[in-house]
Design a protein around this nucleic acid. Structure first.
Lengths: 191, 191, 191, 191
DNA sequence: TATGAATGAGGGTTCATTCAT
DNA sequence: GATGAATGAACCCTCATTCAT
């Protein structure tokens, strides 16, 4: 019960959970399957997590923390807005395409029995770098004076949708497509 | 002689299922709860649906059919592209905001054990009016020469995201916000 | 509820029940299947029988009554013992082979939840003609002085076993086999 | 590390199933009752058997294997035919009387939804010792030249019937009755 | 009377969680 | 700590029986 040191097992459990979610949704996350996929015993999972709910909630927190970092990868504080915007946008899109299981999880999580909107404030959450960036862009007169929430919803919504379609094979995103998408993104929010 | 099969019950089952999904996700759809919510006996559900899977799959088909109609509400064939675009975009947004349970279902459905991508072709599906509209816009030189998939992903993704945030209370969409959103949408795809 | 006149439906129910029992045992006798097989509505069965138990019990009584008659078919009171024995033995064997569903029912009935040994006296039952016949044979010094129960068990047990094997195709009973079986039967009980 | 899989539990399940079958037929075999009777949890049964059908089918196989052994108990290869015949016959009768639950099971099994005649060959089955013995007796000119199937049906059918009547209390088999029965058996098949 | 849709208690099975090893 | 057998509450589904037509 005392949180043990073995981070290897911990990560194996997270990875196993995400893999199962991607394959069959939340309904596919069964504790014995998680254990098997993680290569450990069923009971062992309960050494690392009090119960299934704790596992899921903790997984959410871990993802948020990681995601926050991912968005800012390569970011330099003195970067221009345009450079920063392009970087964050790229980071998000790459992340979205490269880690479908993470977003499969998030999508199922919001709207599952485990997600409690009242205890979650997404403004402060992993998207905050985007919020801050756009606020900066607006103050510099580069971004249209539109409520930031709308701007962010516009940007993330598009990328999320592209990610889903990409995963389903309905849409291939080559280098050219990547540029098209960026062009659309920028056109939609520029002043 | 006996009671006739009742379409009211059928719809009650659909409504009950959607309501439960919105409340607690797919995991919340328990057949006895569906029955209770629909105001009928548990066994009665099995008169109308072979089993839970059949209920979920059928619900998907019904939603797709209805959605198709919704997008085209008020549409006149001789309408200009701009008028048509605005209408379809509006229809989608209103539908997305007004029927959160429908989209909660769809989001959970794709990615659940019930969804089989191999038997589903979404191009032909309920979004086809948007595809056709944008193809028309491109041929008239009004819309940027970007792959239609990308355009549609951009438009629907944004609306979906707005819908989610709206439901969670993170974003209020008043008349002004509505116009902002439309402006972004149009800016992102115009030539 | 008042026993109605329609013997056609009544017999259809009996026949349907037996057919289902032969196909899948007692577990296969489901009231809706009985109704469908009998060509009537589910509820109609309950006009003729209070419930399933009543149907099964009544079916048992009907079979016993019919069986009694079958064994004595063609019997003349002044027939010699040997002629009578051969006749009854033949009747039983033919009945056993020709009506497998009846015996499938009986076999499942004894040993089912429906059969209550305490309220059933089989001495008085449908086998009584055989008992009486053998008692007569013993008193005439033709049959070995062995408890009649044993004699009857010997005769009926053999025929029942032959019937089962015949139904399963493990044994074909042509005219010669018939005579063999009779020879064995008679050899086993003769003085 | 964890508890090892327990053959005691396996046998407890078998015994519990047979007990329930004897009491109320196949219809009385409810998985929760089996578990309770076996003194284990309901779910535990499903560790040892995939489902109810697997339990029943496996029980059949186990019984056949055991039965085969029982018939040959005490048998010596160089025994005379008469000694062997008497031994096997005795073994069968004792088994039939002593293990009514086994035969209650078999009787319900053939004729249930679980029994598939097409995948079962009873010649090779547990009765094979009797077949072989009688073939030997015929070749030695001791047994009447009658198809072996008929001979076996005669012998087993009688014993089965005696067993049933004995269980129902309609027939007591004391030492004398035992000899009567043997006399009949032998008389019926001797040359 | 006849029907078959409707019902819900009950039975089969799953799976989160516990516990003996 | 690690394991996986064991557990039973809870879920899906069936089917005997009822009842509106």
């Amino acid at each position: 019960m005392a949180r043990p040191r073995d981070d290897k097992k911990l990560n194996a459990i997270y990875r196993a959970s995400l893999k199962l979610i991607l394959k069959a949704g939340f309904g596919g996350v069964k504790m014995n399957l998680v254990a098997k996929e993680a290569g450990i015993g069923t009971g062992t999972v309960y050494i690392y997590f009090k119960n299934k709910e704790a596992l899921i909630r903790q997984l959410y927190r871990v993802i948020r923390r990681r995601s926050n970092v991912v968005l800012l990868t390569g970011h330099k504080p003195d970067e221009s807005f345009m450079a920063g915007f392009r970087r964050v946008w790229r980071n998000y899109l790459r992340y979205r395409l490269g880690r479908p299981e993470v977003f499969a999880f998030l999508e199922q999580y919001y709207g599952s029995q485990f997600f409690d909107p009242s205890t979650t404030d997404r403004r402060d959450a992993w998207l905050s770098p985007i919020f801050e960036l756009l606020d900066k862009g607006k103050s510099q007169g580069l971004v249209a004076p539109i409520p930031t929430e709308l701007l962010v919803a516009q940007l993330t919504g598009t990328i999320n949708e592209i990610g889903k379609w990409h995963l389903e094979g309905r849409l291939q995103l080559d280098e050219k497509g990547f540029e098209y998408a960026y062009k659309m993104a920028w056109s939609s929010i520029r002043r």
